[in-house]
């Protein structure tokens, strides 16, 4: 089998002296959705940050489309085609929705009107509110702005850190629908989720992390069906 499109291979490292990740591997294929789930403190967000270069790795490497990007800064990874949506503080609150999207496209020197139109098609509410300050929007709408901002660079991989944290179940379903739609356009999705059950339902691949190491890795469906996963991580 060929290498996956994006892979964080056998990553080991942490913020200080102690390692948080222990030979942890996360990968996503082109146009697929990979979801990282696990209990609190399992290193889910850390694993994603490691893939994005916000964490120094002691061992292991990160490959994007066959290229070793382990040494690149997050900014350089954005230029290589990775988009990242942080869990919090992921918008420019005093700027309008449209300006938020423009800032997302800051590194692009070409005309990004098309991309903006696509994002407005994907999130029609943003088009209505495009001249409103992003900080004044509801939680779900802010998440849409955040995702939209990250999409402005036309990334090949979109990484989402708990995109549904703090939003209502209806909004969550809506957001997941959009994420599936994004994946259908050929963008790989790598996402950390607290709402493991719903996330695994839409996942092509699921990673269950425990204490910074891979515990289970399989397709979303298979994990949902695995009785041990269900009992330990999905609440029965």
């Amino acid at each position: 089998m060929a290498d996956p499109f994006l892979i964080g291979d056998a990553m080991t490292g942490g913020y200080g002296a102690a390692d948080i990740l222990h030979s942890c591997t996360i990968a996503v294929e082109k146009g697929e959705i990979a979801v990282i789930v696990g209990p609190n403190g399992a290193g889910k967000s850390t694993a994603m940050k490691a893939v994005f270069g916000m964490l120094k790795l002691r061992e292991g490497r990160v490959m994007l489309d066959g290229e070793d990007i382990t040494k690149l800064t997050p900014q350089a990874r954005v230029a290589k085609g990775m988009g990242f949506v942080p869990q919090t503080h992921n918008i420019f609150p005093s700027m309008t929705v449209e300006e938020n999207l423009e800032m997302g496209a800051f590194i692009r020197r070409d005309d990004f009107q098309d991309t903006m139109t696509q994002i407005y098609d994907l999130f029609p509410i943003l088009k209505d509110k495009r001249n409103q300050a992003a900080g004044e929007l509801s939680g779900g709408q802010r998440q849409q702005v955040a995702v939209g901002r990250a999409l402005m660079t036309r990334p090949k991989v979109l990484m989402l850190d708990e995109p549904t944290a703090g939003v209502s179940p209806i909004v969550m379903d809506e957001l997941f629908d959009r994420i599936i739609e994004i994946a259908r356009t050929g963008i790989s999705i790598l996402m950390v989720e607290q709402n493991a059950r719903q996330a695994l339902e839409i996942a092509d691949k699921g990673y269950v992390l425990v204490q910074g190491a891979n515990r289970f890795t399989d397709t979303g469906k298979a994990l949902m069906a695995d009785p041990e996963v269900r009992r330990s991580f999905l609440g029965g």
């Binding site: 954005v78 990242f84 942080p86 503080h89 918008i91 420019f92 300006e99 800032m103 800051f106 901002r149």
Partner: peptide, 21 residues
């Protein structure tokens, strides 16, 4: 563009860096 990037930086420094400002 530069003026907007300044406002973005003032608003959210980390995200501004992430956006390549």
């Amino acid at each position: 563009r530069t003026g907007k990037s300044m406002r973005a930086f003032a608003d959210n420094e980390d995200l501004a860096l992430l956006s390549g400002i």
